[in-house]
Write a protein that binds this DNA or RNA. Structure first.
Length: 574
RNA sequence: CGGAGCGUAGCGUAGCCUGGUAGCGCGGCUGGUUUGGGACCAGCAGGUCGCAGGUUCAAAUCCUGUCGCUCCGACCA
């Protein structure tokens, strides 16, 4: 490709809308342009990089035995009603109506469609296992699109769905995808790690997310350097905080009942931990009031812990919850937030974090404004209905499996693999006959990669102050030829044309910067766009019988003219 | 949806508080000088100041509404 014949609208200045490095570079390097919030046009250069990522995904899926197909983006709501997700997933739907006013859904994902297909086409254990995938545009009415392609209303996803006869074989399919994902991200030049993850609204039993460490990521990953443990913060567990609760023995003189005391104006854990009360946070019980499916529940945590809402969802089995309003709380407990507690509460379900299971000599609100109880023993004084895991792991806590201190790092989720079980196959009738002629639901897995997000994650992980540093495997062009003069017939331009023709002939992706621009402009642009290999040709180097081969990552390699094609072929090999 | 901020030329912005001529840089076009790291000179084009209403002799500026964008939260590839 000749630079003057394509469109690469690079920008010197960063558009105000971009906040993170990869978003700024997508715009500045002329890869994408925004049409509207969360909606982007891929310009020729951006599309080339995207196609490279797609091709890597395709090759690895094929290698893992998955079968490519293509499903409609427009879906009938009836199949979502069958799966039960018409209501639970309704928040993400873009809906449209046809001329008869019938409603259709722009597909946010395709479990319902693929399961409907399989229900019709696969009837015997002899036809399994099967794994189908597609690379296709998804539509999600995101509450807040952001960071360019990172979270968009419309994005390209690779989604795969496996169907097996047994749980054991489904595990094999899952492992194949897990391994393929590792290869895909590695080939994209990404450092990605697999972490245990929460299954969320997808349902299912078990899942891993593939995370790209990045400060700008929207997720937090808990990991251990002592063993291989790593998990999304939403899911992570530990041996608990450094100060254990069960070691807080009550003084021998303490009475065998809670003792009410006045705490005027004290409405936070922190305030209670200071003068004159001096009750440290780990000796307090934090009482939260939530509305879950329009019913009140009490959530108890140790004073220094944070509620993990993903764990709450897993615990109560509903994503339909919110903190109760002050009015609802006063009506139910008779006190305002800040003086709440669960002592003597009997009519409301009480979910307590397991960390409190043997807590004694604790302090908590007395459900009377301005008063707290001390000397609370949770098993003696509080009618806990459910002991559960509600707390978020904190930095430095001991790893549950090896005891080393846990670390926490922000990351971008680029892929997610789920074991789904038989939820969809049962609801949508994807049944097969086994060897004994018995009808059974297929055991499913589903596997997603955000292709557009992966492309941006590569930029986020691989750039410097001058621009993008594309890995060879996904660069829009592997080689950029930069003649410093473009006069037709000149020695410089003649050589540039010759090298361009030879590399093109050998099948190398190469772009010839034939713009009549000053050298500085061309150098800056080639670094901003981030071509892995640049061949600089100018009169100075030509006089020495050389051209300059420059790697975007660093080295400058003066190269004899007659050796340059062979050398670049070697460098551009993957 | 809750909270915060911002909408002025393709991009980045000044002007707004204190109402009266829309200004600058980048980019674009023409001509010239330049030519190994985002050149210089001269000239030119490009704006219903997001939109609608209101106040006023007069609105980019003040008021109301609305739409859009960005950031924090919930959602997720």
């Amino acid at each position: 490709m000749r630079w003057t014949q394509t469109l690469i609208p690079t920008l010197k200045e960063t558009p105000a809308e971009a906040e993170i490095a990869s978003h700024k570079l997508l715009l500045r390097a002329g890869l994408v342009r925004k049409l509207s919030g969360g909606l982007y046009t891929f310009l020729p250069l951006g599309l080339r990089a995207l196609r490279k990522v797609e091709q890597i995904v395709r090759e690895e899926m094929n290698r893992a035995g998955a079968l490519e197909l293509l499903m409609p983006a427009l879906q009938p709501p009836e199949i979502w009603e069958k799966s039960g997700r018409y209501v639970t997933a309704s928040g993400v739907f873009f809906k449209v109506r046809d001329r008869a006013r019938k409603e259709w859904i722009l597909g946010p994902t395709h479990e319902e469609v693929i399961t409907t297909l399989v229900a019709g086409e696969i009837n015997s254990y002899r036809q399994m296992p099967k794994n189908f995938y597609q690379i296709q545009t998804k539509f999600r009415d995101e509450i807040r699109p952001r960071f360019g392609l990172m979270r968009a209303k419309e994005f390209i996803m690779k989604d795969a769905y496996s169907f097996d006869t047994t749980d054991e074989l489904a595990q094999v399919s899952y492992q194949k995808m897990y391994d393929a994902y590792g290869r895909i991200f590695q080939r994209c030049g990404l450092k990605a790690i697999a972490v245990e993850a929460d299954t969320g609204v997808m349902g299912g039993k078990h899942s891993h997310e593939f995370m790209v460490p990045a400060e700008t990521g929207e997720n937090e990953v808990v990991y251990c350097e002592g063993c291989n443990y790593s998990a999304n913060l939403e899911k992570a567990t530990s041996r608990g905080p450094a100060i254990a609760t069960h070691k807080l023995a009550p003084p021998a003189t303490a009475p065998h009942h809670p003792e009410k005391f006045a705490t005027p104006g004290v409405v936070t854990i922190e305030a209670l931990s200071k003068e004159p009360h001096n009750v440290t946070a780990e000796r307090q019980i934090k009482t939260l009031v939530y509305m879950v499916d329009s019913k009140l529940v009490l959530l108890l945590l140790r004073g220094d812990d944070q509620l993990n809402e993903a764990k709450l969802v897993a615990t109560v089995g509903s994503a339909n919850f919110r903190p109760a309003t002050a009015e609802e709380i006063v009506a139910a407990l008779g006190a305002r937030p800040g003086s709440l507690g669960a002592v003597h509460v009997t009519k409301i379900p009480i979910y307590a974090d397991s960390l409190l299971s043997d807590a004694t000599d604790m302090t908590t609100g007395a459900n009377e404004d301005g008063f707290h109880y001390r000397n609370v023993s949770i098993t003696r004084d509080i009618g806990v209905t459910h002991w559960v895991d509600l707390r978020s792991v904190q930095l430095g806590e001991a790893c549950a499996s090896c005891g080393k201190p846990l670390k926490i790092q922000r990351a971008i989720e680029v892929g997610h693999v789920f074991k789904l079980g038989t939820k969809y196959s049962e609801n949508l009738n994807a049944l097969f006959l086994d060897e004994s002629g018995k009808q059974q639901p297929a055991v499913m897995g589903c596997y997603g990669i955000g292709v557009t997000r992966t492309m941006q994650a590569i930029i986020e992980q691989s750039h410097d102050k001058d621009g993008i540093i594309w890995p060879l495997s996904v660069a829009p062009y592997r080689v950029c030829i930069t003649p410093l003069g473009v006069v037709p017939g000149s020695a410089v331009m003649t050589l540039a044309e010759k090298i361009y023709a030879e590399l093109s002939e050998k099948g190398v992706d190469v772009i010839l910067d034939d713009r009549d621009e000053r050298p500085g402009v061309k150098f800056k642009d080639s670094e901003l766009v981030g071509f892995p290999i640049r061949i600089g040709i100018g009169e100075k180097s030509l006089a020495k019988g050389e051209v300059e081969v420059k790697l975007r990552g660093g080295e400058l390699l003066p190269t004899k003219i007659e050796e340059v094609v062979a050398k670049v072929l070697e460098l551009a090999k993957q």
